[in-house]
Design a protein around this nucleic acid. Structure first.
Length: 906
RNA sequence: GGGCGGUUAGCUCAGCGGUAGAGCAUCGGCCUUACAAGCCGGGGGUCGCUGGUUCGAAACCAGCACCGCCCACCA
């Protein structure tokens, strides 16, 4: 049997993924045995296009999920998408704008239908892209945040929180996006540097006795001023506190108040107060019982309160106000001023602080169990019910959680979960402060007046409210499903740092609150949180559309193969550090895949054409080399398991890489060539070891490179003798190391010497200017009895590896033109040089080696002569250093000796 | 204004208390019948700076510098 000359990633990817799905390998069954291992995918937006962040996220999740599945865990990985309120609504709004229509033209019902249509046709494209990455999710459990089941969970949670007094409706300052025409949460506001001005405006006192100057960055808001504030201890203004001001342009009389929050150093020391358009002013206004005058509408245009300025935009109004003030000689100065302005994270529009009726989650208010949502979420991480990787993200989480403000959850959008609050139209007519009925089902009549004319609240919920329930809503909550019982809390959450507050924090708060039927530590939505960093371009720059440096994962998958992309991402995934993706790195991974493929071809062409399981060979019958490579495999298995358990994906990938390339390929395949040619028992042993090792290496490779590993595994499968053989690698067992070591420590040392000796001969050959294929006469000398004995069995291997005509012993090597190298714990290994060889080249090399040894020897000498070292360092270290020194002395002597001989040789 | 991360070979990064490592790039030599996406050999680093702790520091501590992030209502 033979493998094709090159690996074709594309066909393998399509073929095996389809087959895995058809076989139902990724389907989770709560009734099956095995410790649970569950992950819910961070649901990408339905509008999403696969980017490298997703690719990294999914690759790492898949690495760990596949590993756990192979390790026999009862594995569940839930996929799905997020309806992504504003984002999706914007997409469809743009769509219908092409026909010159707005959502208002369609009306709410028709518009929402339209978004659903869009979702059915184009949405969820990203899930197909995740499949192409090989994501071994249970695709039969795909969820969407607006699914009926998940929507039911949303309603249930809302009602629960409301009844517990943790959701309230209130007229508060919120961030308003005039373009999206909705409230947004604090988190959805981005603060950007802006170069603005500070306008110093003279406000005349009402009694005509003078004026007070205020400084502001937003002169247009003066139309809504209801006071001027000064610091109570500011002597400049003491006499003015309590006096009235006649507000320019508007003519309203407003008071001068004293408040501690005023910074005496800033501006003029007096600040205008606009309680309806500034968070600080709002708070100050409440302390002083000031009226709140909104001067803008929902588009941030000036309203009737702005008098003559009604109808202007904020920007136009500012210009006009400044011009008018100047005309009246009330503008004292304009100074440049750099500050931050808040913009909508969705559309970059400058956010307007507005006074508005909204729904809030009271995150700091004690709930039924006495703990606040935020408090419980902090405690869970403090108690390590949930642990972050890397750990330092916990500090970020804590600092945000400890300063958290109430969460504005209502959005004036159409696409999303509508708030389950029902207003009685009759009651509203009578009482301005009428309270809605909050219920899971639409009530038939008003509980107060019996009226049947009820209208549901117009607002929808922040999209993060539903994603905050994701770890349990996807498992069937609020029903007590077998899934929920078996798979909650999930084992791991793997997500980006950019949504720690948006998502991770909210899941923590809501999970602990909702899952109230079990022990405290089991309420958390996940046990471990792995935070992924940013993927940057090869110059270390953030990938942004505007920069045009966005790498499309699908493109590089096409170019290098999905396995190579996955392997590269895993290899770069160092905890706590952004990863920089380059073509070089990808090409190296592709080369790795190629290397494995060719190793497989080598193995295949050395097996019988008629495939049949190779008879197991007993350890005693295996050659040294066979036992050595099996021993190395066990070590690799142990190390890779450890690395994955610690979420050190980079180390895990490196271990797999090192084993396959630099141990299996570089050494074992070379060692096997001779026995393979020899026939008989030696050949049988080598074949067995090759196949067995390949089986093992494919198993540890599979989580990283699922496609090529499955492809090769299937080709080799007919030769496997294992009794617990699965149909496919995707569901095969992860290897476990043998209980008894394959090699004695002495044998291992001898193998290391063998490797060192081979490298030494290669180096000497190169020194002679010979080609790697040039046969040599190898001479060994000055071996101790012990090292000789231990090394004896490796001699045949050394002969093959070094391409030696012969390996001979010569205690003194007299009379021969030989150049030597010293091998630690073995002796000298050399090759015969030709008559014409200029020994100066060899002497140079020797001198260099000698210099090195001298340097180290002096270091050790100095340390061992240092009383303090002898006294204070732990005895083991001292002993080690002494032994080390002896070795170095020996090397020094031997090298000097060699050098002397070479000098004699001329 | 607070906080967090980073600074190690030309590049990208491991190492995190006892002789400086990997991959890529580079230089020399090889198409040695698995692999030129390869093989063999070589060169290349006062581990950002300054102090401190220690017998010993790239590693621990403090300060500084530079880069990058996050948070924050100085109008």
């Amino acid at each position: 049997m033979e493998l094709s000359k090159t690996f074709d990633p594309k066909s393998a990817e399509e073929h095996w993924f389809q087959l895995w799905i058809d076989r139902g390998y990724f389907k989770a069954d709560p009734d099956r045995e095995g410790d649970p291992f569950s992950i819910v995918i961070p649901p990408p937006n339905v509008t999403g296009q696969l980017h490298l962040g997703h690719a990294l996220n999914v690759t790492l999740q898949d690495v760990i999920v596949r590993t756990r599945r192979m390790q026999g865990f009862n594995t569940l990985w839930v996929p799905g998408t997020d309806h992504a309120g504003i984002a999706t609504q914007n997409v469809v709004e743009r769509e219908i704008a092409k026909d010159g229509k707005s959502r208002h033209d369609l009306g709410r019902e028709r518009f929402v239908e339209r978004v659903w249509e869009w979702k059915e046709t184009y949405g969820g494209k990203i899930l197909h892209q995740l499949r192409r990455l090989g994501a071994s999710c249970d695709w039969s459990r795909e969820r969407f945040t607006l699914d009926p089941g998940l929507s039911r969970a949303v309603t249930r949670v809302f009602v629960m929180l409301y009844r517990d007094g943790l959701i309230y409706r209130g007229r508060r300052m919120i961030n308003w996006c005039p373009r999206c025409e909705t409230a947004i949460s604090d988190l959805e506001v981005e603060h950007k540097d802006a170069q603005g001005s500070l306008w110093h405006i003279r406000y005349p006192l009402a009694d005509g006795s003078g004026s007070i100057t205020v400084a502001t960055t937003r002169p247009e808001t003066m139309l809504g001023d209801t006071a001027v504030a000064v610091h109570p201890a500011d002597e400049r203004f003491t006499a003015l506190v309590g006096k009235m001001i006649r507000l320019p342009l508007i003519g309203r009389e407003i008071p001068i108040v004293a408040d501690e929050s005023v910074d005496r150093e800033f501006g003029s020391g007096a600040v205008k107060i606009t309680p309806a358009h500034d968070f600080n002013d709002f708070e100050l206004g409440r302390r002083h019982n000031l009226p709140q005058i909104s001067v803008m509408d929902t588009h941030a245009r000036m309203n009737s309160e702005a008098g003559p300025y009604q109808g202007l935009t904020r920007e136009q109004c500012r210009k006009q106000v400044v011009a008018d003030l100047e005309a009246q000689d009330l503008l004292e100065a304009v100074t440049p001023h750099s500050h931050k302005i808040g913009v909508c994270s969705r559309c970059d529009t400058v956010v307007e602080p507005m006074l508005s009726d909204q729904w809030f989650v009271a995150v700091n208010k004690p709930g039924p169990n006495g703990k606040s949502l935020a408090g419980a979420a902090i405690a869970a991480v403090e108690h390590s019910d949930t642990t972050f990787h890397p750990k330092f993200w916990e500090n970020t989480y804590f600092s945000w959680m400890r300063n958290i403000q109430d969460w504005c959850i209502s959005r004036q959008l159409w696409w999303g979960h509508r708030i389950p609050a029902y207003w009685c139209v009759r009651c509203e007519g009578i009482d301005k402060d009428a309270v809605p009925i909050v219920a899971e089902e639409r009530p038939t009549s008003c509980s107060k007046c019996g009226g049947a004319d009820l209208r549901q609240d117009e607002d929808v919920l922040d999209t993060w409210f539903s994603s905050g329930l994701w770890p349990f809503s996807t498992l069937g909550w609020p029903d007590a499903t077998p899934d929920l019982k078996r798979y909650y809390p999930t084992s791991l959450l793997l997500t980006g740092f950019d949504i720690i507050f948006f998502w991770v924090a909210r899941m923590m708060m809501l999970g602990i609150y909702c899952i109230d039927d079990r022990a405290e530590k089991d309420r958390v939505p996940f046990r471990q949180v792995y935070i992924t960093p940013l993927v940057r371009d090869q110059y270390g720059k953030k990938m942004t559309k505007s920069r045009g440096n966005v790498v499309d994962p699908l493109e590089i998958m096409e170019k290098y193969g999905t396995d190579a992309v996955r392997f590269t991402l895993a290899q770069l995934a160092v905890q706590g550090r952004d990863l920089i993706l380059s073509d070089d790195r990808l090409a190296a991974s592709r080369a790795f895949a190629n290397k494995i493929w060719n190793a497989a071809r080598f193995v295949m062409m050395n097996l019988d054409d008629a495939p049949q399981p190779l008879a197991p060979v007993d350890s005693a019958q295996l050659g040294l080399a066979e036992r050595w490579i099996l021993s190395r495999l066990d070590i690799a298995v142990r190390d890779v398991t450890k690395a994955i358990d610690a979420y050190e994906f980079n180390n895990a990938a490196l271990i797999v890489y090192q084993f396959i390339w630099h141990e299996f390929c570089d050494w074992y395949i070379e060692l096997a060539k001779d026995p393979l040619k020899a026939g008989g028992e030696r050949q049988a042993a080598a074949r067995y070891a090759l196949v067995r090792c390949f089986d093992g290496l494919l198993r540890i490779l599979h989580p990283f490179m699922p496609f090529i590993s499955e492809e090769i595994w299937q080709a080799l499968r007919p030769y496997f003798a294992s009794t617990d053989l699965s149909d496919h690698l995707a569901v095969a067992k992860f290897p476990t190391p043998a209980a008894t070591p394959w090699l004695s420590p002495e044998e291992e040392t001898a193998m290391n010497s063998c490797i060192a000796a081979t490298q030494a001969v290669n180096s000497l050959r190169s020194l002679l200017g010979w080609n790697p294929g040039q046969r040599v006469q190898t001479v060994m000398k000055r071996m101790t009895e012990e090292s000789f004995g231990q090394f004896q069995p490796w001699l045949p291997y050394l002969k093959v590896l070094t391409k030696s005509e012969a390996v001979t012993f010569d205690r003194i090597a007299a009379g021969k033109r030989v150049i030597f190298a010293h091998i630690e714990r073995l002796g000298d290994v050399g090759i015969e040089a030709p008559e014409a060889f200029d020994f100066e080249v060899a002497r140079k090399k020797l001198r260099k080696q000698l210099d090195e040894v001298n340097k180290y020897e002096r270091q050790h000498e100095a340390r061992l002569n240092d009383e303090n070292f002898i006294r204070k360092a732990d005895p083991e270290t001292v002993t080690e250093a002494q032994q080390r020194r002896e070795v170095l002395r020996g090397q020094n002597f031997l090298l000097s000796e060699q050098l002397r001989q070479l000098e004699e040789a001329g």
